[in-house]
């Protein structure tokens, strides 16, 4: 019963939060200089009158609250606003791209965690061993490299060796070959690896730090003293003790499923939300921006709820709170 109350409360908070995010995003976007029509203004072949009449047609001359209410109405009608650039409802742009982004994000997250967990645990188990030293050198390198430089390197390699495609999600005519799935996997390999390499070092650092702490904690030492084997010690004592920060991290990386891959999607031509969102940001195609921000917020709320519930389930000490 208590958990139901808790969920009810969280749901209420989530609704309030989403409302706040939508209002603030709308307001902040207003503060940024420039409008969707500015690019047209620079074109000498388009007159100022045409640009001004478009402004009226798009309703950009309306006061802020009116525009916000129009957006809300459209969101509740299921269209999530109207894209000025594409001349169509945002909902028509959103869903396929969201699916593609999820596919990439999930794959990358799985790779990142399956790299970070074993390597981090091993690093804590044998600190200053060669694996640990290698880890810290490579992860520092990765942390310091900008995502785009890393992507560029992988793409250069792909262009050179020709084994994997340099970008995109499917080959031309792949739907006729009967190997459409294999084709998508081939295209997925590079962007997912790059994203995983970007995300893994942070996870690795935290896994290692948490495990090191757990491993050196009095109760694990005591258990060690009782002659419990390393394997059991690890799985039953150290790992649960180290789980706390990892769960919070897991929640954050769950929330990052939508937004974490944007830049890589752009440079690798992945047909996700990334190119759409980034173009919309710079083009001031506000309703597209709103839709993606709201999508991300919903995911964030869900991810944080999941991580809170997990925290509650795994760590007995946290339970005192709820």
């Amino acid at each position: 019963m208590r958990i139901l109350d808790y969920l009810k409360r969280r749901f209420l908070h989530a609704v309030l939060l989403l409302a706040a995010i939508s209002v603030l995003t709308f307001g902040i976007a207003q503060l940024a200089p420039g409008t969707f029509l500015d690019e047209m203004r620079l074109n000498p072949q388009i007159s100022a009158q045409t640009v001004d009449s478009l402004r009226v047609q798009y309703g950009l001359d309306q006061p802020l609250p009116v525009r916000y209410l129009r957006w809300i109405a459209s969101a509740f009608a299921g269209e999530f606003g109207y894209s000025l650039a594409y001349n169509m409802p945002v909902s028509a742009l959103l869903w396929t791209r969201m699916r593609n982004t999820f596919l990439l994000g999930t794959t990358a997250m799985l790779i990142a965690w399956s790299l970070a967990l074993p390597l981090g645990i091993w690093g804590a188990f044998r600190p200053k061993g060669w694996i640990d030293r290698g880890n810290s050198a490579i992860s520092t390198l990765l942390l310091s490299s900008p995502e785009l430089a890393l992507g560029m390197l992988f793409m250069l390699a792909a262009a050179r060796f020709g084994v994997l495609p340099t970008g995109g999600m499917t080959s031309l005519y792949s739907e006729q070959t009967g190997f459409a799935v294999a084709d998508v996997i081939r295209h997925l390999a590079i962007p997912a690896t790059v994203l995983a390499l970007v995300a893994a070092p942070m996870l690795l650092r935290h896994v290692r730090a948490a495990m090191l702490e757990a491993w050196n904690s009095p109760f694990v030492k005591a258990a060690k003293g009782h002659g419990i084997g390393n394997r059991r010690l690890l799985l039953h004592h150290a790992l649960p003790a180290a789980a706390n920060p990892l769960i919070s991290l897991f929640g954050l990386s769950l929330a990052g499923l939508v937004s974490g891959s944007f830049l890589i999607e752009v440079i690798m031509g992945w047909p996700g939300l990334g190119p759409l969102f980034i173009n919309a940001i710079f083009a001031r195609d506000l309703h597209v921006v709103m839709a993606v921000v709201m999508l991300f917020s919903v995911l964030l709320v869900i991810a944080n709820l999941i991580s809170d519930v997990l925290l509650y389930a795994v760590d007995p000490r946290v339970r005192a709170e709820c």
């Binding site: 020709g162 495609p165 031509g269 047909p271």
Partner: peptide, 20 residues
């Protein structure tokens, strides 16, 4: 004619160089 949406000029060049 197939138009591929590659993202930016750098990607455009790499896709061209790789023969795609």
């Amino acid at each position: 004619i197939a138009f591929l949406f590659v993202g930016n000029e750098d990607a455009q060049i790499l896709r061209f160089q790789s023969g795609e």
